[in-house]
Amino acid sequence: EHQTACDSYWTSVHPEYWTKRHVWEWLQFCCDQYKLDTNCISFCNFNISGLQLCSMTQEEFVEAAGLCGEYLYFILQNIRTQG
């Protein structure tokens, strides 16, 4: 039997508790949902936990993801305040 992915999907966990996999799933979702250019995102810069992600500043997001960084930063802040 296969496990259902939704059990541990990033949407069901507060961002501060995300694993590295959750972070990448979220990035992929943002790219799909908001039509962000994946080429401007250095995924290696996001090989981090949710706690590390949440402690990043807006400037660090821009450094890590170029033009997309600002969008990603605000998307994350939205999730954190709603969560």
Rank of each mutant, 00 (worst) to 15 (best):
T19P: 01
T4E: 10
A5G: 11
L51C: 11
M56A: 00
G69T: 00
Q28L: 12
C54H: 04
T81N: 14
N47K: 11
I79H: 10
N78D: 15
W26H: 00
V13N: 04
G83A: 13
C44W: 08
Y17P: 01
P15M: 06
E63A: 11
H22S: 04
E59Q: 10
N78P: 02
A64M: 07
I75L: 14
V23R: 02
E1R: 05
G83C: 12
H14G: 09
V62R: 10
C68W: 06
Q52L: 05
E63L: 06
T81S: 12
Q77W: 06
L53A: 01
W26Y: 06
V23N: 07
L51A: 14
T19C: 15
T81L: 10
F74L: 14
D32K: 13
Q52C: 03
I41S: 04
A64L: 07
E16A: 12
F29S: 13
W24R: 15
I48F: 08
I41F: 11
T4D: 12
Q58A: 09
L76P: 03
T81H: 12
R21I: 01
C40M: 11
C40Q: 15
R80L: 12
L36G: 07
F61H: 00
R21W: 08
M56F: 05
E59R: 09
S55G: 10
L76Q: 02
C6F: 15
S42N: 15
E63H: 08
Q52T: 12
W18C: 05
W24Y: 15
L36M: 13
Y73L: 02
E16T: 12
E59Y: 06
L67T: 14
Y73R: 01
A5H: 12
C44E: 15
L27G: 02
L67P: 14
W26A: 00
E63S: 10
I48N: 00
L76S: 02
H2K: 12
W26N: 06
G83E: 12
F29L: 05
C68H: 15
Y17A: 14
T57W: 06
T57C: 04
V13M: 09
L67G: 15
Y17G: 13
K35V: 07
N47C: 09
V62K: 13
T19H: 01
F61L: 03
I41H: 05
F46T: 03
I41D: 04
Q3H: 15
Q58P: 09
P15Y: 02
W18N: 02
K35S: 09
Y73M: 04
V13H: 01
R80Y: 03
V13T: 06
I75R: 14
Q33R: 14
V13D: 05
V13K: 05
N45I: 06
N78G: 11
Q82I: 06
Q82R: 11
C31G: 02
A64C: 11
H14V: 05
W10L: 11
E16Q: 13
P15A: 03
I75D: 15
P15K: 00
E60P: 03
Q52P: 02
C40A: 12
C54M: 05
H14A: 11
E70K: 12
F43I: 11
N47T: 05
G69S: 00
S42H: 11
E70R: 11
G66I: 00
H22R: 03
F61I: 05
C54Q: 02
T57D: 06
N78F: 06
S49M: 05
W26T: 03
I79M: 12
N39S: 13
Q33A: 11
G69Q: 05
H2M: 08
L72P: 04
Y17H: 10
I79G: 01
R80G: 03
V13Y: 06
T4H: 13
K20V: 08
L53C: 01
V23G: 01
E1N: 15
A65W: 11
Q82M: 08
T38L: 12
H14P: 14
L72C: 05
H22M: 11
R80H: 04
C40L: 12
D37W: 00
E63G: 09
L27D: 00
I41K: 04
I48M: 09
F74G: 15
M56I: 00
C44L: 10
L36Y: 06
Y17R: 14
C31I: 07
I41Q: 03
C54I: 11
T57K: 09
T19F: 03
T38H: 14
Y34A: 06
E1S: 10
K20Y: 00
H2S: 09
F29W: 13
L67I: 11
C44S: 14
A5V: 13
T4P: 10
V62S: 09
W26S: 00
F43N: 13
I79W: 12
C68P: 13
E25P: 00
I48Q: 01
R21K: 11
Y71W: 09
D32G: 07
L51G: 12
A65P: 04
F29A: 09
H22C: 04
I75Q: 15
M56P: 01
A64P: 00
H2I: 15
Y71D: 15
Y73Q: 02
F46L: 07
Y9H: 14
Q82K: 11
Y17F: 08
F61W: 10
Y17N: 13
Q77Y: 02
S8F: 07
H22T: 05
C31W: 03
L76V: 00
C54Y: 00
L27Y: 11
L53D: 05
S55Q: 13
C54K: 06
L76D: 01
Q77H: 11
C54A: 05
L67Q: 14
R21C: 08
L67N: 14
V62P: 01
T19W: 00
W24M: 14
N47D: 13
R80S: 03
H22P: 02
A65V: 04
G66L: 01
N78V: 05
V13C: 08
D37L: 00
E70S: 09
L67M: 12
G83S: 12
M56E: 03
T38N: 12
C31Q: 01
N39P: 02
F74D: 15
E60S: 07
L76H: 04
F46M: 06
C54D: 04
Y17V: 10
Q52M: 05
D32W: 06
M56K: 04
N78T: 09
H2P: 08
I79Y: 15
I48T: 03
L67W: 12
V62N: 08
A64V: 10
T57Y: 01
F74W: 10
E70P: 10
G66H: 00
H14R: 13
L36C: 00
S42T: 09
E60M: 06
Q58F: 04
A5S: 13
A65M: 07
Q77L: 08
L51K: 14
R80M: 12
